[in-house]
Amino acid sequence: MSSENKIYFYPLWLRIWHGINALGIILLIITGISMNSGFEKSFISFKLIITVHNYAGVIVTLNYLVYLFGNLFTSNKKFYIVKPKNFLKRPMKQAYYYAWGMFHGMQAPYPLSEKRKFNPLQKYTYIAVMYLVVPMVIVSGIGLMFPELIFNKIYNISGVLITAVTHSAMGFFISIFLLIHLYIASIGKSPVDNFRSIINGWHHITKK
């Protein structure tokens, strides 16, 4: 394996962010589901679940700043720039590749390189999750932690309810994202290759 086939995609700060984020989010999902499930008896107490959820939430929030500033101040941001040309065609092509092409000998339409870390579908998903869904979950989470900040009522609807529903819905989307994220990450040179990359920083690319 020559080193030309490897690119250093994931700098250390990004890997640290990602590791903390992944563990934090997993804790949040487990505790979040368990406190909303309405089970009276769970093996850890409701109170402890809430404490874990609160701490994990604060950590993920602070950690989010690492991601935000990292992408503001390092060259990693260039991978997140969306080209307006063929805005919809590009991710469609990638989706077609995943759903059909890859089983029929088609070459990946957007092979990764120094200039391209994500395929278009991946890029759009990361942008939506990291700049829309995660911020919303953070804001609504802060609201629920300090309920006095929330509007009492929006028309006839309780502000707490809206905040809580937003929080759960966004949390749910993150769970679905995670599920698909994990699966898609297993599509690589070998099923574990991408997971190694996000830990050691080096990504294998297939040279034409």
Binding site: M35, N36, S37, G38, F46, K153, N156, I157, S158, V160, L161, I162, A164, V165, S168, A169, F172, S175, I176, L179
Partner: peptide, 24 residues
């Protein structure tokens, strides 16, 4: 939605719950 007293753990919105299960 018109219920102003939301209690986490006891107030589930059945429609959203079903929807989320379907998506999942």
């Amino acid at each position: 939605l018109s219920n102003e007293n939301y209690v986490i753990g006891s107030h589930q919105i059945p429609a959203l719950k079903i929807l989320s299960l379907i998506i999942f």
